[in-house]
Write a protein that binds this DNA or RNA. Structure first.
Length: 605
RNA sequence: UGCCCGAUGGUGUAACGGUAGCACGGCUGACUCUGGAUCAGUUAGUCGAGGUUCGAAUCCUCGUCGGGCAGCCA
């Protein structure tokens, strides 16, 4: 895992460098980061990068990372998302940064106190590792609505915020443009007492949605749009998933975020690049309130993009709602729950995030890199088994009909401790259709007429003929003879065969459905669509292929859903956690094995 | 035509004024009872032009290209 603070390399990335500097200079004495998703969708691989970053930094510096729902917009949020986000975060960091996870006792609110004459609110996290002793939950920005409201009143008292009666359209028109200054509101010089009264009545529910807003009084001439008297509060007479109907005014992101960070004692607030222009406002709010404790420091990094997929929650939501996928956890989705269901280990996702690093430039990481870490992890851990996805019957003519025997197979050549298992063999076996060619192309080493191959850990067989469908001419059965001296796959005379193929005894086979996945989108960058075209047009029509009637070796009948297994020569698979049933297993292909033959074939055209 | 940020092999990321490195991918080959894994080799990069300096990916200037910003979204 990652290095501890002692053997920390001089630089790992620009953010860790900053944290290290802050520590060295005594600006902070304990590192507190946070992961603040809005519960309006499921977490995806882009969030995984942020989680690994925020928890990774907390871990490297013996700090903590709070999980916080950034839930200031009740119209878009839902508890379903709160639950999935919490589960996904815990799953991703399990066994790695559990001890850094900051949560709070259920229902716990920020504590009010006074420091040097200044009103202050503070909440201290309970570390997630202590869960069990008491019921814990994530932090919620909505739990700070009261402190936030008090801070807003304070801002009004300081003459730094005012209630504005202009409509959204008017505000729009008055904001100006990037290259044109804005115009000051007609209500900008409203007396403090009137602002106080109006804002309290906003809270009391006296005005309809949109009638008024609370705005910061900053600078309508600023070249930075976010400093042109930004809206701090809006009126929304809608219930909130966490606070019920206690509130009808809701704080905006910019007002809530920095103050939430402050209330939790966050030292480093790391977010994506698009918030860089908000940073002056983030700092302005903290400074304007003259908050007595150390201010959190916002820094930005580039969000992750991965080829062949989309990352925006809006687009992912459309894929779900419009039925292009089977849900947020569809194994084709780049969501954490989708990847989990598909069989990606958390360790592999973390290794990926570690490898891609963090910087400020726009990036597009190849999906292949993620797959590399999935294979790398699974190669070491996944037990092997034999499964035939597209069965072709092979009859071994000189093997006694009705006889069977058990072969001993190694469970994992990468892990001697994994032991062996026994697999039944008989005179009729299934092999992969791909493993037989009546007319072998150049460099094809598998079974074809007259050619000898090894049935893995069983016997060497030679193809003696084929049986064809008289109608279609298609090969429906292969005839073969075996060499009894090669039991276990060994050749007493030392002769070599070019190929070893997998097999499943027909009479012992377990039937299963296997789901093969390809990339969700055919093109590298699905966001790069011509004007007027929709990104869904780029969906890969063969992203899901369902194979019924696959033949599995008997040991696979009791596969634990979610547990990885390698189907030899094919890839890594896992029984589906939703749809697999005892006696009717359903497997997902997590990722293929690297396939040298496929490359040769491609080159041959 | 405003402000902010960025630019290193195909991709991602290091090098903080002193040998352009690592990983993935690609290509060769070795080995192999998985055409997997493993091993060895190889391919390929500092956006451009000036300047500072003994020395520049790094500092400065001007360009070029890319991204972000005009929600009562986050």
């Amino acid at each position: 895992m990652g290095p501890g603070p002692e053997n920390q390399p001089e630089r790992q990335d620009f953010l860790r460098e900053m944290v290290q500097r802050d520590l060295a200079e005594g600006r902070v004495d304990k590192v507190v980061t946070r992961f603040p998703p809005e519960p309006n969708g499921y977490l995806h691989i882009g969030h995984a990068k942020s989680i690994c970053l925020n928890f990774g930094i907390a871990r490297d510096f013996d700090g903590q990372c709070n999980l916080r729902m950034d839930d200031t917009n009740p119209t878009k949020e839902d508890v379903e998302y709160v639950d999935s986000i919490t589960a996904d975060v815990k799953w991703l960091i399990a066994g790695w940064a559990d001890h850094c996870l900051g949560l709070k006792p259920v229902g716990c609110l920020a504590e009010r106190r006074e420091i040097g004459g200044h009103e202050d609110y503070h909440i201290v996290p309970v570390m997630g590792a202590e869960e069990g002793r008491e019921a814990l939950e994530p932090f919620y920005a909505s739990d700070y609505f009261e402190p936030l409201y008090q801070f807003a009143l304070e801002l009004i008292r300081k003459g730094k915020a005012y209630v504005d009666d202009h409509s959204a359209e008017e505000l729009d028109a008055m904001r100006g443009a990037p290259d044109r200054p804005g115009r000051e509101s007609d209500y900008r010089e409203r007396p403090v007492a009137e602002n106080l009264d109006l804002f309290q009545r906003m809270r009391a529910g006296e005005f309809p949605d949109g009638a008024r807003t609370l705005r910061a009084k900053i600078d309508m001439q600023s070249p930075n749009l976010w400093l042109r008297d930004p809206v701090l509060y809006r009126i929304r007479h809608v219930p909130h998933h966490h606070t019920g109907d206690e509130w009808c005014i809701y704080p905006m992101y910019d007002f809530a975020h920095g103050l939430s960070d402050y209330i939790e004692g966050v030292t480093h607030s790391l977010c994506t690049l698009e918030f860089e222009v908000h940073r002056p406002l983030y700092d302005w709010i903290l400074d304007a309130l003259e908050l007595p404790r150390t201010h959190p420091r916002q820094r930005e990094f580039a969000r992750l993009n991965v080829t062949h997929t989309v990352m925006s929650k809006r687009k992912l939501l459309r894929l779900v709602q419009e039925g292009f996928v089977r849900g947020w956890d569809d194994p084709r989705m780049p969501t954490i729950s989708g990847m989990r269901r598909r069989g990606y280990p958390a360790e592999a996702i973390r290794a990926f995030c570690d490898r891609i690093g963090v910087a400020k430039r726009e990036n597009m990481v190849e999906l292949g890199l993620l797959e590399h870490f999935v294979r790398d992890d699974l190669n070491r851990r996944a037990p092997r088994a034999m499964a035939v996805l597209r069965p072709l019957r092979v009859v071994i003519e000189n093997y006694p009909d009705g006889q069977d025997e058990e072969m001993e197979l190694i469970n994992n050549p990468e892990d001697p401790g994994a032991g062996t298992r026994r697999v039944p063999f008989s005179n009729v076996v299934y092999i992969e259709q791909d493993d037989f060619r009546e007319v072998p192309p150049p460099k094809y080493h598998r079974l074809s007429p007259g050619v000898e191959v090894r049935l893995r850990s069983a016997y060497l067989i030679t193809c003696t003929g084929v049986v064809k469908d008289p109608q279609t001419g298609e090969v429906v059965e292969v005839r073969a003879s075996y060499d009894p001296a090669t039991r276990g796959g060994d050749t007493p005379d030392g002769r070599k065969v070019k190929s070893t193929i997998h097999w499943v005894s027909a009479q012992h086979a377990v039937d299963a459905e296997v789901r093969l996945y390809e990339t969700l989108f055919a093109m590298e960058d699905p966001d790069d669509v011509p004007e007027g075209r929709d990104f869904t047009e780029g969906l890969n029509p063969s992203s899901l292929e369902i194979l019924p009637g696959c033949k599995l070796e008997p040991s696979l009948a009791s596969a634990v859903p979610g547990a990885p297994v390698q189907f030899e020569r094919l890839g890594y698979f896992c029984a589906d956690t939703e749809d697999s049933r005892p006696g009717a297993p359903v497997f997902n292909r997590t990722v293929t094995l690297k396939d040298a033959w496929a490359r040769i074939e491609r080159k041959q055209g």
